[in-house]
Amino acid sequence: MGVDSTMGVEISNYYLYEPSHAAPAVFSALIGISLILHLYQNFRYKFWRVTFFMVWGGLVFLIGWIARTVSSYHTGNLNLYIVQTIFIYAGPPIYSAAAYNIVGRLMNYLPMHTPLNPNRVLILFVYLGALVEGLTAAGGAKISAANGRFDVMESGGTLMSVALLLQAVVETILVSMVGLIHYRCANGGAPVPPNVRRLCITLYGTSTLVIVRCICRAVESFTLYKAIAKCEGGSCSSAIRNDFVLTHEWYIFVFEAVPMVLFTFWLNLLHPAQCLPRVKTRYLDLDGKTERMGPGWIDRRSQWKTFADPLDLSGVLKGKPNNETFWVQPEKWPLAEDGSFAAGTATNVGGRRARLPSKSTPDTLSESV
Rank of each mutant, 00 (worst) to 15 (best):
F265P: 03
V254N: 14
L224R: 13
W266L: 15
A218S: 11
A146W: 02
I211Y: 04
Y251E: 03
Y183R: 13
V245W: 10
G205R: 10
P259M: 15
E171T: 08
G157Q: 00
L262Q: 06
L246P: 09
S161L: 13
P193H: 02
D151I: 03
A186E: 13
W266D: 07
L174P: 03
N187Q: 00
R197C: 04
V192W: 02
L199A: 01
I215F: 09
M160E: 10
V258G: 03
V212Y: 02
P191G: 09
T223I: 02
L270F: 15
N242Y: 05
V258S: 00
A146K: 00
D243N: 15
D243T: 04
V196P: 05
I252T: 14
F244H: 10
L164M: 04
A227G: 15
I240C: 04
A186T: 10
A141T: 14
L166C: 08
F263Y: 08
L166D: 11
T208F: 15
T136S: 07
F253N: 07
S235Y: 04
A190N: 06
I240R: 07
P193R: 02
V170N: 13
F253T: 05
I240P: 05
A218Q: 11
F255S: 07
S221P: 13
R197V: 06
F222M: 09
I181H: 05
F244L: 14
T206L: 01
L224C: 06
R213D: 12
I173F: 12
V175F: 15
S144M: 06
S238V: 14
M160S: 14
C214G: 10
A186R: 13
L262G: 05
